[in-house]
Design a protein around this nucleic acid. Structure first.
Lengths: 127, 127
DNA sequence: CGTCAATTCAACCGACTGGTTGAACACGGA
DNA sequence: TCCGTGTTCAACCAGTCGGTTGAATTGACG
């Protein structure tokens, strides 16, 4: 489940603690211990959170002796931005567009909108 | 858990099926049955998905006889966009900034970077 | 070498999730 | 009024998630 990258990114950021970590990592790299400091959970829990962020491609870890500084990867944010922008714009345009269409056409043409190409369960992965 | 709106929105969109529903709703409103058509799950499952999207404020339902047309709410997308944009920019700027700093200063000044103000567990809710 | 600090691995636990089936509810139409 | 269609409610199940504790790993340093 949640196999694709976008799903992993969104799921990773759905957790407030992880979002806060990202916020702090946007300011400066940090080690696991440093990141764990403010939270009322064990270091192991934070380590797990970091694994989730890393699997999503949101952070990377380098090696500095026994420390593993965590670094935020900004590029992945574009994945989200693209997806969001696409459908936000569509939804906003539709507002106007559909209003016009409804005014111009009889219901039968507009409403059904769901022909037989939906019958055979298609891939439905809009990218 | 995931109490706040942003968490609910991200968590809702972390599911590919729900993301696909949103994509289709960006094109046109639809009923539960219509939405369920392409997927290989029961109508009840789709109804649950819609509840998640509704709780996140991503869709709304009106009443049309026994049908409950689902409508995409575009405004909520801004919540995400704002959060993402903030930290994306920060992370990108830091790239340049830190590079300069590292070039200009000896390691000892740059590295420690984490004074005692992290000791007392602060609120850490960056908004 | 032995020790200490930072991190991760492993096993476990309770809560939530996405799915199911089956029953109930809400309306419009014959 | 009864029937059919669309939708939701309820209970259940398997798997995932965020958290724990305890042990193992890794590498610097005396």
């Amino acid at each position: 489940m949640a196999a694709d990258q976008l799903s992993r990114v969104l799921s990773a950021l759905a957790d407030p603690t992880r979002r806060d970590m990202v916020a702090r990592l946007a300011v400066a790299d940090a080690t696991v211990l440093e990141l764990a400091q403010p939270y009322d959970v064990t270091v192991q829990a934070v380590s797990k959170h970091l694994k989730v962020l890393e699997d999503a491609g949101l952070v990377s870890r380098s090696r500095d002796a026994q420390r593993r500084p965590v670094h935020l990867e900004a590029e992945v944010f574009d994945l989200m931005t693209k997806w969001i922008e696409r459908y936000r714009r569509l939804a906003e345009n539709r507002y106007r567009r559909l209003d016009e269409v409804l005014r111009a056409m009889p219901d039968e043409v507009v409403k059904p909108d769901r022909p037989d190409d939906r019958k055979e369960k298609h891939d439905h992965q809009h990218q």
